[in-house]
């Protein structure tokens, strides 16, 4: 039997080691996911979006995706159902009906949010998805094994899979026009196309300043919440709106990315192999103490048997 003193000793040392290893986790995460201070992003002002769907067209042109001609954007019948980006369309605009007392519907552009600490990257077991320190979440098709864990992990349900392609299927999603933004010094195709500048491209920090400024100057027009500033650990794509984001089907997320939480636990346990060693040590200590007890019990039993005899 484990004495009270033994138990206190064991649990105390376990807690101490756990705390020490977890303290190490925080620094490991911070250094493991280096992000440039100048990293890029896009701010979507939902109150400016008019649902013209030109961003969808521009995205298709840029990525060589099938889409009708420019005038096909005027087809408003697509708003009858809520759409999700898929392998043929990396961005879609959905229309949410006007709330009571207003006749203005809200048009919402949906695409990859390029999270600061992406769960898809965390879930990817081969490193095909990566977080670029400059912002975009990039995808390397040559590394992808098609496990689709990223699709399960994404809180925004963004990555899409080419189910129709049996031989070389890829996971597809918005690229934040990496070539244009990081190499050619241009803005993403959708941002450039947007006639109303509902989309603004720039340094994430500047965009946050801009969003705060707009909210400060127009308190009647916006709710004081920049989606993506902290939500889900922060995103490169930021949003401001005149209503709660849950009304436009954006998930309620904690200020820490799910990836950060799970990685914290997993990496913490295995950091320096301390966790496994600790458990192994604990089990051996217990085993030893139990072995001693059992030995004592056996001796006692034998003695009793001897007495009886």
């Amino acid at each position: 039997m484990v004495s009270r003193r033994d138990f206190m000793k064991i649990s105390g040392s376990v807690a101490g080691t756990a705390a020490a290893s977890l303290a190490g986790v925080q620094t490991a995460c911070a250094s493991g996911h280096h992000l440039e201070p100048d990293r890029i992003g896009v701010l979507t002002d939902y109150t400016e979006c008019i649902g013209c769907r030109r961003c969808e067209w521009a995205c298709a042109q840029e990525n060589g995706l099938p889409f009708g001609d420019l005038e096909s954007c005027d087809d408003q019948s697509v708003f009858q159902e809520m759409r999700r980006p898929d392998e043929r369309q990396y961005t879609v605009v959905n229309r949410y009906p006007a709330p009571e007392g207003s006749d203005k519907p809200l048009d919402v552009k949906v695409n990859c949010m390029h999270c600061e600490h992406p769960t898809c990257v965390s879930a990817c077991i081969v490193g095909a998805l990566k977080k670029d320190p400059m912002g975009p979440v990039t995808y390397d098709a040559s590394a992808c094994i098609g496990c689709r864990y990223c699709m399960v992990a994404c809180p925004f349900q963004i990555p899409a899979y080419e189910y129709h392609d049996p031989l070389t299927p890829k996971v597809l999603k918005c690229t934040l026009c990496t070539e244009r933004t990081l190499e050619e010094n241009k803005m993403p195709a959708c941002v450039e196309m947007c006639p109303k500048e509902a989309l603004t491209f720039g340094r994430r920090e500047d965009l946050l300043d801009l969003a705060r400024d707009r909210i400060r100057r127009n308190p009647d027009r916006y709710l004081p919440h920049i989606f993506g500033e902290y939500d889900g650990g922060g995103t490169s794509w930021l949003m401001i709106a005149d209503r709660d984001f849950t009304e436009v089907d954006l998930p309620e997320l904690s200020d820490r990315s799910a990836a950060e939480i799970t990685e914290g636990i997993q990496h913490g346990i295995f950091r320096g192999f301390t966790g496994p060693l600790m458990v192994f040590g604990l089990v051996s200590i217990l085993g030893k103490s139990m072995g001693d007890q059992e030995g004592r019990l056996d001796q006692e039993g034998q003695r009793k048997e001897g007495d009886n005899e």
């Binding site: 649990s11 376990v14 807690a15 756990a18 977890l22 986790v25 939480i261 966790g275």
Partner: peptide
């Protein structure tokens, strides 16, 4: 004891 260890590992973060 094992249960408590697991709890500590999960609850601290």
């Amino acid at each position: 004891i094992l249960l408590m260890v697991m709890l500590i590992i999960f609850l601290v973060p």
